[in-house]
Amino acid sequence: MVLLPTAARHLRAPPLIPAVQAVLIGAGAALGLSLYLLAAQRQMLAVVVVLASLYPVLPVVLGIGVLHERVERRRAIGLVGTAVATVLLAVG
């Protein structure tokens, strides 16, 4: 409690860009949870659980696209297999 006034003097408003990013991330999380609830209500959990388990693919794709990481043959085969499986699940 004694240090609170001193700490409050050093606080600054966050820059606009991280604040906008935080709002977008929050909106994306809310959308994802809403869609998950909708899928649960419509008895489509078998598809949703499999697609949700593909979350490790996103950092790999971002690493390739944003950081220009090299893609090894095994990783490329895995990404293609994942894409094919996702399309097959979506089609039915």
Rank of each mutant, 00 (worst) to 15 (best):
E72P: 05
L37Y: 10
V84Y: 04
V2G: 03
R42M: 09
L67C: 07
G78N: 10
L79S: 11
G92I: 01
V20R: 13
L79C: 09
P14W: 03
M1L: 05
V71F: 02
E72F: 05
Q21I: 14
Q43R: 15
V50R: 12
A52E: 00
S53T: 13
T82Y: 11
R74N: 12
T6H: 09
V60D: 02
Q41C: 09
V66K: 04
Q21M: 11
Y55N: 14
V84F: 05
A19Y: 00
M1H: 14
R42F: 10
L38A: 15
Q21P: 01
P15K: 09
V23A: 10
L45R: 10
I77F: 13
G63S: 00
A7E: 07
A22H: 07
G32T: 14
A19R: 15
V50A: 12
I25V: 14
G78D: 09
V48D: 02
L24C: 07
M44R: 13
H68S: 08
P5A: 06
A8Q: 10
T6R: 11
A22V: 01
G81M: 03
P14M: 04
A7Y: 08
V91K: 04
L37D: 05
G26L: 00
L37A: 15
L24H: 09
G65R: 03
V47G: 13
A76W: 05
P14N: 04
M1T: 14
L54F: 13
A39D: 03
M44Y: 08
I17W: 00
A46P: 02
I25Y: 06
L4P: 04
R9I: 06
L45W: 01
P15R: 13
L38D: 12
L33K: 11
G65C: 05
A46Y: 04
A83Y: 02
G65N: 09
S34M: 07
A30M: 07
R42A: 14
L3P: 11
A29F: 00
V60R: 04
L45G: 04
Q43C: 08
V80S: 12
T82C: 15
A40P: 01
R9F: 03
T82L: 06
L35M: 13
A27Y: 00
V60A: 03
L88A: 15
V91D: 04
P15M: 13
R42D: 12
S34I: 04
V49F: 01
L33M: 09
A39Y: 05
S53H: 14
A76H: 06
T82D: 10
P5E: 01
L58G: 03
V49M: 04
Y55H: 15
G81R: 02
L67P: 02
G32A: 10
R74H: 08
L58R: 12
A27M: 01
A7W: 07
V71M: 08
A39N: 12
V61F: 01
R73P: 05
L54D: 09
A85I: 03
A8Y: 08
V57D: 02
G81P: 07
T86M: 01
V60E: 00
L16I: 11
A8G: 03
I64L: 14
